[in-house]
Design a protein around this nucleic acid. Structure first.
Length: 276
DNA sequence: CCAAATGTTTTCCC
DNA sequence: CGGGAAAACATTTG
């Protein structure tokens, strides 16, 4: 289930391991860099997040956890996010791709950190290079958003999911902020006008923290609706019919009524700018 | 059996 | 070289 919001939930949950020492590490080398073993004996100094990536700063290496589509984290035996939509509800030990035991351990004796990922699309890296990641979605400024979108001719939905543009948005949250801002996902990112960018930025800065409080990327108004037999648009008073199509390689849900495929008349109706 | 699934990475084509 | 679209990856679920 991991988008940036889930990564943030897990980052918070990992605060309890800060200050502990890494006692033992085991990895699935198909997806986790065996260099993680260099962390044994080191102290966990802090836990950070950047986009969808959770970072463990040790007194030795930095460990980067990427969750793919079905990875999830279990901390001291407790899963901060229990239900994995679109993934197995089970938690089989053989799906653990990373295990970190700490000293001290949890009172329960549980493994401190487990990355459990059935599909094995997640990754564990050592001293990762995050240089290509765009500004974090919970922190991005209007200006940064505008600058990044201006150089993309791809559909705005695809641009938003591109981690080099903004880091942390996935399929669900991208649909959600576009829905909230009234922008069709198919519109070219570089053809949004300033009022569109403002609406999008507002949606990102307001909707996402609300969704985070409500449990993550599945807490949006669109989520309960993403299956077959699309219901009417959930926006009150809209009355449109939702549509679903693949955009940017993923199933995209939007309402053509209040997210018109062409820029709304706003730009045309705008009064001439008095400059010079 | 088939389709689809919250994500990257690779490949191919301008 | 660069952007974008599509396929690949791996496994489970409906």
């Amino acid at each position: 289930m991991p988008e940036g919001l889930e990564a943030e939930i897990w980052r918070e949950a990992l605060d309890v391991v800060v200050g502990r020492r890494v006692a033992d590490v085991s990895v699935d080398e198909r997806v986790a860099d065996p260099g993680v073993h260099a962390a044994v004996g080191e102290r966990i100094e802090s836990v950070r997040r950047r986009g969808k990536v959770v970072l463990l700063d040790t007194s030795g290496p930095v460990l980067a956890l990427r969750f793919g589509m079905t990875g999830r984290l279990v901390v001291d035996g407790v899963a901060p996010i229990e239900t994995l939509a679109y993934a197995s509800a089970a938690d089989r030990p053989e799906w653990d791709r990373l295990r970190i035991r700490t000293e001290p351990a949890a009172a329960s004796g549980a493994v401190a950190i487990r990355l459990n990922d059935p599909r094995r699309l997640g990754r564990v890296e050592v001293d990762p290079d995050l240089g290509r990641l765009g500004p974090d979605v919970l922190d991005v400024s209007r200006r940064e958003l505008a600058d990044a979108l201006r150089r993309r001719s791809a559909p705005v939905k695809a641009a938003l999911m591109n981690q080099e543009v903004v880091s942390g948005l996935g399929n669900l949250c991208a649909d959600e902020v576009l829905f909230a801002s009234g922008i069709a996902p198919s519109r070219r990112a570089d053809r949004l006008d300033p009022s569109d960018v403002s609406a999008l930025h507002r949606a990102i800065r307001r909707r996402l923290p609300a969704m985070l409080d409500a449990g993550g990327s599945t807490a949006g108004v669109l989520d309960p609706v993403r299956r077959r037999d699309l219901p009417p648009c959930p926006r009150r008073g809209c009355g449109g019919r939702l549509e679903a199509r693949r955009i940017g390689g993923r199933t995209t849900v939007w309402c053509p009524e209040h997210q018109p495929p062409e820029p709304s008349g706003a730009a045309v109706d705008a009064p001439p700018v008095a400059d010079c």
